[in-house]
C-alpha cells in the first residue's frame, strides 16, 4: 500500500506546462522527491497527468515519495564527447560519468521517479539496489546508494 505524505493540492486546470511549473515549485518548497497522487482513489503517478488515470478524478495532490527507493533501471553516461544522436545537458558535462536513475520509492512502489547519481558509487550500481533521495540547493533530485551497497 502506498505510504506517502501529501504536500498539497495539484491543480490541473492550467494544462501540462502549468503542471510542470507547479511541480518545480513544489520541489523548491519541500526539497523532497515529488510525485502525484489521486485525492479520491490514492493512485500515484509519475510523471504527473491532468487527471487520475485510474478513476478519472481531477482532485489530485502533490505527494512526497519519502527518503528511500529501489533502482528499477539506470543509464550511465560515460563520455562528454557525445555522438550525433546524444545531447548531454550542458550543466552535466563536467560531471561525466554520471548516471540517470529510475527508482521506485519505497513509499510508492508502483511508480518510478528520475534522479541523478554521481561519484564513485556508480561502480557498484545494480538493478534492485537501495537508494536514498536528496534534493540539493540546485533543486536536483539526487540518488545515493545506501551504505550496505
Amino acid at each position: 500500500m502506498p505510504n506517502y505524505t501529501v504536500l498539497g493540492p495539484c491543480p490541473v486546470q492550467g494544462g501540462v506546462q502549468a503542471l510542470a511549473d507547479d511541480f518545480r515549485a513544489t520541489v523548491r518548497a519541500h526539497r523532497v522527491a515529488v510525485a502525484q497522487a489521486c485525492g479520491r482513489c490514492r493512485t500515484a503517478n509519475f510523471p504527473p497527468l491532468l487527471a487520475c488515470r485510474s478513476c478519472g478524478s481531477y482532485e489530485l495532490q502533490w505527494i512526497s515519495c519519502g527518503p528511500t527507493g529501489t533502482i528499477g533501471t539506470y543509464v550511465t553516461v560515460h563520455t562528454a564527447d557525445a555522438t550525433p544522436s546524444m545531447s548531454i545537458p550542458r550543466r552535466l558535462l563536467d560531471r561525466v560519468p554520471y548516471t540517470s536513475i529510475y527508482a521506485s520509492p519505497d513509499a510508492v512502489p508502483t511508480i518510478r521517479v528520475a534522479a541523478l547519481m554521481v561519484g564513485g558509487q556508480q561502480e557498484r550500481l545494480k538493478v534492485g539496489a537501495a537508494v536514498t533521495f536528496d534534493v540539493g540547493a540546485d533543486l536536483q533530485l539526487m540518488a545515493n546508494l545506501t551504505p550496505e551497497h
Binding site: 501540462v16 506546462q17 510542470a20 511541480f23 509519475f46 510523471p47 543509464v75 553516461v77 557525445a82 544522436s85 546524444m86 545531447s87 548531454i88 545537458p89 552535466l92 554520471y98 548516471t99 540517470s100 536513475i101 528520475a114 534522479a115 541523478l116 536536483q140 533530485l141
Partner: peptide, 15 residues
C-alpha cells in the same frame, strides 16, 4: 516537453 520537464535534469541524452 514532458521529456524535458521530468527527465532532462537527471541527465537524459536522447533515444
Amino acid at each position: 516537453l514532458d521529456g524535458v520537464n521530468y527527465l532532462r535534469s537527471s541527465g537524459w541524452t536522447g533515444y
